[in-house]
Each structure stands twice: as structure tokens, then as C-alpha cells.
Nucleic acid binder design. Structure first.
Length: 376
RNA sequence: GGGGAUGUCGCAUAGUGGCAAUUGCACCAGACUGUAAAUCUGUCCUCCUACGGAGUUCGGUGGUUCGAGUCCACCCAUCCCCA
């Protein structure tokens, strides 16, 4: 694998890069649709690939481990073969589930005891077995096992949690280096910066993560409820510490505006459930603003969903019809909305890249932000 | 013509003396940031100085009662059975 910067913006920290994997090239900055269970909810692989040209998608270790399970995934020949997606895949380690499933897990020094949300069965995740699991899933990019701290978070908790994440990282790196890919293509490991919203901890964590000299680096523990300015502040702080020549991944972010602002701070990779989950719930992101498709005001709006949109659904369907589909709870509604939103997110990061290459990124970004946050 | 039953906030329901009144649906609005989410929350009689206050409500009219959706009388409407 290879990551190279094609251009760095003169007026911000934004960068345009080329990330080459055995499953194809990723042009950064990039947005990665989330496909937790091995499927981007409500979206066909064909539409993801041919229509909106997603370059990489996510999967989740915790979910895939529980179902369908490692035996199935291994026999299938890995997740790519199993779900028919032949472009890159990144798997989250389950670190986020340590946070989101706080009610059904027990945190220990050597790992996390999870109680399955599906059948209540107990499972123990360790840095080592999480690496093995991700080897078996066959993700191109593997995430270190971490603890995503909540917000707010006491200093001492954040400090101890960060230390635990670092200890686990050592174990992850060792296990990763002592094992081989299972399906004949390369895999890389990304460690994750934690430290909550404490400057000294974040700095310390970023330095530690950078010292491991992994292929790329990720920032976790943000966008968990803290004020948005705080998220930018800490993204900026961490980016200033992380090496410039390696890809930077801001986990779980975010709104279209969040993404542009974070690109300006030096982030290359994003993932977020927002375009798919909010899409399923009737929210559409467009270049003119945000639409709540369920609102009565679209009842008789027979204009296209998004006249600037690049997906076939944007011109194929009208707002009135899509609202009708949501009202009637037709399955087609979340499908259309998800595809539209993902198309928009990918268009947005693609445009960001174009403007970085053209040298007018900041100007373009500042022009876009007010539109992105408008409520139509 | 005779007998029986029922009328509650859009629809459907709960409520047999303290009730602006249960629940579901619909409607309207909001939330959602490494997915326990095709989910969740709020509003849903009217008005206001709106985590509070005021006014009008349970087919109609009258009555009993400190107090009535609830009890009584009559009326109206609907449904069922027998002619």
C-alpha cells in the first residue's frame, strides 16, 4: 500500500492525496460509507459502485464477529468475497461499541467483556483477538482496539482510558506484526488517538500514536456530544502532531460542514452514519441546504429531489413523490434517501479535492458552509 | 309496530362519582455524528405572558350531587333481532 500527497493547500492544512490499496485507489479527502454488518444499509453494491462511485466502505468487527461469525467469513474467503464488494474495506475494531454498548459490557485491563445485543451471550475482546478477527474479515484497513471515551469525561478517567488504549495499541501492533493477511492482499493498521477534550492528554496521545509509525492514523473520541468548536479545536491540535505524510482519519464525523472544516484542518478520511441513518429517517443533505423530506411543505413540490445531485435518484424522483414514499413507509424511501445522501457526501469531498488541487479550497469552503447548514 | 344495544378530542378505543379525560393509528414537528436506529422524542380541544395559566368539552336538553363522561328523565341518531 502507498499513500502520497498530491497537493497541500496554501491557506489551510487541507491536503489532496492518493491512497493505493490492493483493492484499488482511494483519492483523498474521502468519505467512507458505513456498512456495519457488511452492507451499507438500504443501498445496493451496484449503486454504491457504479452510480455514486464509493471508493471504500466500512464494516464493524463487533457486529460481523457476532453475525455471521468468523467461520462463515473465513469460509467465504473474507468479507469482500462474502458481500461482493471488491473495493477497499476498513473495519472498525469494536472500540466504538465499548462506548455505545456501555450498558452491556465490562471493561477490564486485558480487554472488554461484551454481552451480545442479539442473544445476550458473552464474548471477550482483547487487542490480540480483535487483530485476528480483522485479519479474518479481511479488511484492507484495520483499526486498533481502543476505548472511545464519552463526553463529558472526568480527567482521571480520560487519562486512564488513554493509557489503556495505548497499552492495547502496543499489543495490537505486536499481534498485527506477528500475523499475516489470510487472503493474499495487504492489510494495514491504523492506531487511534484518544484523550477526550484535554489538551495535554490529546497531545500526549497523538505523540504516542505517531511514534508507532503505522501506515495511517486515526482520531477517535470526538463527535460524541462535545460542542462543535471543541471538536475542531482538538482535531486541529492532533493534526499538528500527527505526521504529515500519513493519512489521517477522523472517526465518526460528521455533518457536511464538519467534514469541510475538518478537511481544512488536515483530515483525509471520514466515516459517519449520518447520510444513511438520517437519510432513512427522512433527512436529505443537498448543496443548497438540508431538507426534512417528511415535512408537509414538500407535499406538492414536483421538482427533482436535487437538481444538482449526481445520483440517478436525484433526477428520477420528485420531492413530492419521495415525501409520499416516506409517508407511506415504503421501503423505496430510505433507499432513495440513502443513495442521494451518500452521493452528496461523495460529491462534496470530491469537490473539496478538486478545489485543493485548484488552489482555491478555503474560498470555496467558506462559500459552501452557509449553504450546507441552511434548512430548506 | 315490538324487543335489545350503542353514542367519548380526525378514526378506533379506555374510562360506572373528583377527569382536559386511557391507549393505538393518523396528522404535525423535532432529534440522529467510528449504526443495539426502516429508530427515538414531542405535540396533538381552544387561547395565553406557555416545564406555567385561563377557558370550553364526552349526541342534545333538563335534573340529582359539594362535584357528572360516569347516576336519573325525556329527546335525537345509529346498529342488531322479531314482525
Amino acid at each position: 500500500m502507498k499513500f502520497e500527497l498530491a497537493k497541500t493547500d496554501a491557506h489551510s492544512q487541507a491536503r489532496a492525496g492518493v491512497f493505493e490499496t490492493d483493492h484499488g485507489t482511494i483519492l483523498t479527502p474521502i468519505f467512507m460509507p458505513v456498512g456495519t454488518l457488511g452492507s451499507v444499509k438500504a443501498v445496493h453494491q451496484r449503486d454504491l459502485k457504479d452510480d455514486i462511485q464509493a471508493q471504500i466502505i466500512l464494516g464493524n468487527t463487533y457486529h460481523l464477529y457476532l453475525r455471521p461469525g468468523l467461520e462463515v467469513l473465513e469460509q467465504a474467503g473474507g468479507l469482500h468475497k462474502f458481500n461482493g464488494w471488491d473495493r477497499p474495506i476498513l473495519t472498525d475494531s469494536g472500540g466504538y461499541q465499548v462506548y455505545s454498548l456501555a450498558g452491556t459490557r465490562k471493561l477490564k485491563e486485558d480487554g472488554v467483556m461484551f454481552q451480545s445485543h442479539i442473544d445476550g451471550s458473552r464474548h471477550f475482546f482483547t487487542p490480540e483477538n480483535v487483530m485476528d478477527t480483522q485479519r479474518t474479515i479481511g479488511a484492507d484497513i484495520i483499526m486498533a482496539f481502543d476505548e472511545c471515551t464519552p463526553y463529558p469525561c472526568e480527567y482521571n478517567y480520560a487519562k486512564n482510558s488513554m493509557r489503556l488504549t495505548h497499552t492495547w495499541l502496543d499489543q495490537c501492533v505486536a499481534q498485527f506484526e506477528n500475523t499475516e493477511p489470510k487472503y493474499g492482499y495487504d492489510q494495514v493498521l491504523f492506531p487511534i488517538v484518544q484523550g477526550s477534550v484535554y489538551k495535554d492528554l490529546r497531545t500526549q496521545s497523538a505523540e504516542y500514536i505517531a511514534s508507532k509509525n503505522c501506515f495511517g492514523n486515526a482520531i477517535g473520541g470526538l463527535s460524541v456530544g462535545e460542542p462543535i468548536e471543541m471538536m475542531y479545536e482538538f482535531t486541529d491540535l492532533v493534526c499538528r502532531v500527527l505526521p504529515k505524510d500519513k493519512p489521517r482519519y477522523l472517526m465518526g464525523v460528521g455533518t457536511p460542514a464538519n467534514i469541510l472544516e475538518s478537511i481544512a484542518l488536515g483530515i483525509d478520511m471520514f466515516d459517519c452514519v449520518m447520510p444513511t441513518r438520517n437519510g432513512r429517517n427522512g433527512m436529505l443533505f443537498t448543496s443548497e441546504g438540508i431538507i426534512n423530506m417528511k415535512n408537509e411543505k414538500w407535499k406538492k413540490d414536483f421538482s427533482p429531489i436535487d437538481s444538482n445531485g449526481l445520483s440517478f435518484v436525484d433526477s428520477q424522483y420528485t420531492r413530492a413523490y419521495l415525501r409520499h414514499l416516506f409517508q407511506a413507509q415504503e421501503m423505496l424511501a430510505p433507499m432513495i434517501a440513502s443513495l442521494h445522501n451518500l452521493a452528496f457526501y461523495l460529491w462534496l469531498v470530491g469537490q473539496a479535492r478538486e478545489h485543493i488541487l485548484a488552489g482555491d479550497f478555503t474560498e470555496w469552503k467558506n462559500r459552501m458552509i452557509p449553504k450546507l447548514t441552511t434548512r430548506l
